[in-house]
Amino acid sequence: MASKQSLIDSILILADSSLILAQRLGEWCGHGPVLEQDMAMTNIALDYIGRSRLLYQYAAQLQGEGKSEDDLAFLRDVGEYKNLLLVEQENGHFGHTVIRQFFLEAFQFPFYDALQNSQDQTLKEIASKTIKETAYHLKWSTEWVIRLGDGTEESHQKIKTAITDLVPFTGELTQAVSCEKELIDQNIFPDYDEIKRKMDALINTAFKQAGLELPTQVYMHQGGKKGLHSELLGYILSDMQFLQRAYPGLEW
């Protein structure tokens, strides 16, 4: 049986990644390239907030210390956050946001699909809700990768830059850390090698259609899942946690 701590830590990787990405997508609110896409990105952000809440609630329940979803979201510092480095990266231009989303969905689609067969009943239920959202997010981001890749010369260059900038943060996605390995052994999490094959296939298919190439021989950064982040996360958290930190212990 996997240790409870490993289960909690692995859930926090998913929960924190969802929340930090929602936080980033929320920054687009009111600033999108066209009103219709503003709404699309907000919808995605809302899906991610909802997902993070389910996951935090489950983690808090497993901890059994009487903490709430908000305690987990608002009262942990950078070192305790376990989100992927990819999701804390800045929005950049729309191409960066699209590529960040696409890489993540290309991982999450096979991941949550497989998680529907988890030995853990709660994760199984969360996965079966999440997979529907993820399928849509994957579709949205894939279509934009293709549009930007096969759009104008300018958009092609811009999305190429975004790929170069963000590929180094994709290695971590399918690189299991120790808490995840325990879960994989117990069939609570799916095997990451299989997920990686599917993820690569999704990326290659989309890139081929978009006339884009995935850079090889890239140095892959790691550490997010263990709490080793870029400097960016501190700013995200100080923004997000400001009220809870400045006025502790209150109802909002």
Partner: peptide, 14 residues
């Protein structure tokens, strides 16, 4: 927002 979105709108159109 509008100006920075121009290339995106143009790409989708193209």
């Amino acid at each position: 927002a509008h100006n920075e979105g121009k290339w995106v709108r143009e790409a989708a159109e193209a």
